[in-house]
């Protein structure tokens, strides 16, 4: 079986992807993005020429089992380092806008 998908990415889809990817897109940009994505996906559609029903997906070239490591402490007291690049001035925590009313 060969997949055949109707491929038009409309503004509604762009808004949906924008929400999923947490990137706000204004209407003017959304139009341009829809055009770009449609031309890219039209080109990508050629993959449908291939029947891949019996093919195993390849997710990584290093197809070995992931290594396990010993559960041991290698670095300590890195709190300051971790917080060093925090965009907020507060030196003790990461600060975000109020989440719970």
């Amino acid at each position: 079986m060969v997949f055949k998908y109707h491929m038009t990415i409309d503004l509604k889809t762009i808004k949906h992807i924008s929400k999923l990817s947490r990137i706000s897109v204004d209407d003017k940009k959304a139009k341009k993005l829809a055009d770009d994505l449609n031309s890219i996906f039209k080109w990508i559609e050629q993959l449908n020429e291939l029947n891949t029903e019996k093919v195993d997906p390849l997710s990584s070239i290093a197809e070995t089992k992931l290594r396990l490591r010993k559960d041991e402490i290698k670095s300590e007291n890195t709190r300051e380092e971790i917080l060093k690049n925090s965009p907020d001035e507060n030196k003790d925590f990461f600060v975000v806008p109020k989440v719970v009313e």
């Binding site: 762009i14 994505l37 990508i44 291939l50 390849l58």
Partner: peptide, 29 residues
């Protein structure tokens, strides 16, 4: 942004098999 949105789209519900899984299979070929 364009690439994040392409990626989000091909991984999103309803499109994963048609795009991402398909691409992984072609990658094997």
């Amino acid at each position: 942004k364009r690439r994040i949105m392409i990626g989000t789209y091909v991984l999103s519900s309803g499109y994963y098999d048609a795009y991402y899984l398909k691409a992984q299979k072609v990658r094997r070929l």
